[in-house]
Design a protein around this nucleic acid. Sequence first.
DNA 1: TGAATAGTGTCTATAAGACAATATCCC
DNA 2: GGGATATTGTCTTATAGACACTATTCA
Lengths: 254, 254
Amino acid sequence: MTKHSKKQKKSAEQAFLASYDASRFPKPSVSVDVALITAVDGQLKALLTRREKFPEKDKWSLPGTFVGLEESLDIAAERALRTKTGVSGIFLEQLYTFGLPQRDPRTRVISVAYYALVNFEKLTRLQTQSDRIQLVEIDVPWDGEKGGQVRAKDKQGKRLKLAFDHAEILGLAVLRLRGKLDYAPIGFELLPRKFTLRNLQRIHETILNKKKNKDSFRRRILASGLVVPTGEFEVSVGHRPAELYRFKRGAIRK
Amino acid sequence: MTKHSKKQKKSAEQAFLASYDASRFPKPSVSVDVALITAVDGQLKALLTRREKFPEKDKWSLPGTFVGLEESLDIAAERALRTKTGVSGIFLEQLYTFGLPQRDPRTRVISVAYYALVNFEKLTRLQTQSDRIQLVEIDVPWDGEKGGQVRAKDKQGKRLKLAFDHAEILGLAVLRLRGKLDYAPIGFELLPRKFTLRNLQRIHETILNKKKNKDSFRRRILASGLVVPTGEFEVSVGHRPAELYRFKRGAIRK
DNA sequence: TGAATAGTGTCTATAAGACAATATCCC
DNA sequence: GGGATATTGTCTTATAGACACTATTCA
């Protein structure tokens, strides 16, 4: 192709783009929803907000927002999390896109779901907020790919109704966690910067909903090189204190 | 809540929905793109079409389409595959959603990417079609999470230019394949109904781009229970014929 | 008969689970 | 000292890789 014809082609493309009318086609709305998950006392919890408006008024939903026209999906998810819950700078990863035509009664809304992980202590500010935002215990009794119903319970153990298809999103988020746990360093996202190996084991057991062998867990984690001892120890724990470790970014696990 | 107030609430919600105006907000366009992958002669190939229109004219792209307003994402992906390539009824699974604001020069287009797997022999009809649709050798030199550049080559080994961010989609599709291979029965999707264990091993080696030990591969597959012998054997292969197996749907792999 | 690959048996290395013994801190 | 958990060591079991050997078909 000559330089001349290249220039011709370029301008033809520019003319095409200039005359392109995106409004000719009807479009769905696009939102992001974020499943923010943490672990406390051997229980997985998710951050939910009670809806004050129609539709699905008074049901509990994941923090979400519509995607801005000039905004990437990742940025939209980060913005939803920040503006609705005050949390930012944490692990956030795309999960799955939900697009059944009737999933939102208002209009066609396609939702790109994300999941986020955070150490519980970073959320303590939220505890003092209104009861519109709550950390809610979630229960995902799925064995393999799918399974029983996802349940969300408030502090009194009362079951909460989830809006839209958000129960399904939560279920898939936990399933993804379980699947990635053994080959991606995600357990650390739920812990403070320094932690004991037993803390980490507890996190794994909470996510998998299954006891793990202490000895081999310890060996496996240490052998992975993902963790380095700090030389510091727990204090005032009423028993022999365990050494504190920290996560070593970038180490490749086997 | 009394029956009366429930009814009140219900009608309030209906009134809200009736007056909801979805056109108030500007919206992105939403498309699906499908990475159809097969394996031939130890090489992974993808089905690509040469673009005849702007933008990205003459570059090669994945079959795709805009999502209909009343159509689920899965159905849209299935439709794109069927109408653009004539293939249907095959393995199709959502991959990831791509949404950078500038990924399409026309307007904001968010693309929900899918990947599909099919046995090469089901595609033979396509070989006779125009050269606008081609099965193209793809090369994904990624070690772990990310890595080198994805390359697509035509039959003469000439490198093809890929449109939009479709190289990235192909790379992620192959990465997903590699990750799922050991715990999901996806190798079978690339084989005919009856196959030898060596055929299956070849598929695994092609996907992982890595030789596998014959003995332990055999043991592992047989132990998984995912495969049952048919009692039939290869014929006229110039050496001792191997037994043909078939995939046993629903067996759980350890 | 020889080429070529299928299929089987055995040994070794590695990693996880089970169990036990010892170490250390706090009360 | 006693309670409680951390940390280390050893044994057993399951699995993957390496290697060698036998089996079977076809040219």
